[in-house]
Design a protein around this nucleic acid. Structure first.
Lengths: 88, 88
DNA sequence: CTGTGACTTTAAGTCCGTC
DNA sequence: AGACGGACTTAAAGTCACA
């Protein structure tokens, strides 16, 4: 059932690279979740890759981050940056 | 709530460009849905932009089409190709 | 500020059919 | 081949209290 590679968390395809993007903006989960009007706890579980997010929410998050929705689905690009390093 | 522009159908963010991609492959909705193991009726409604698809299924469809998941979220690129033409 | 578990509501997703 | 509907089951959405 899993399609995308598991770089981030247990649930491969739901782990969005948004974590990095958000942190780069220096915004907390709480603040960001509030900004895009979704529950902070729910957003947290998304970043942890525990949820199978829907397209609407992907777009919502992308908009909040100021990137095109497709940017969040770049599992490939992510792999390029984080080549499955266990030790660091 | 709607985030992405509505080029395809009533539900902006769920309208995937997969329609074009699938047709280019010369596969029917029925055949394709069967291939990736989702309901034909459901897949039809996705292409019509009536559904808020989950990420798992986006990846599933992308895999079936042989493109990276991010390719399906290119609303921007789509707009470039189809600049909101009403008459044609 | 974030993780987690328990929870209710809503929509996703399936399966049958017809036009 | 595809649009569309009804009835149904499952999972996601969304909220909250507490760690």
């Amino acid at each position: 059932m899993a399609v995308a590679p598991s770089v981030y968390g247990p649930r491969a395809s739901t782990a969005l690279p948004g974590h990095q993007l958000r942190k780069e903006k220096g915004v907390s989960q709480e603040a960001f979740a509030h900004q895009i009007q979704i529950d902070r706890s729910y957003f947290g579980s998304i970043e942890r890759g525990e949820r199978n997010v829907s397209l609407d929410n992907i777009c919502l998050i992308a908009a909040g981050l100021g990137v095109p929705p497709s940017e969040l689905l770049r599992f490939d690009a992510v792999r390029d940056v984080e080549p499955a390093r266990v030790d660091e």
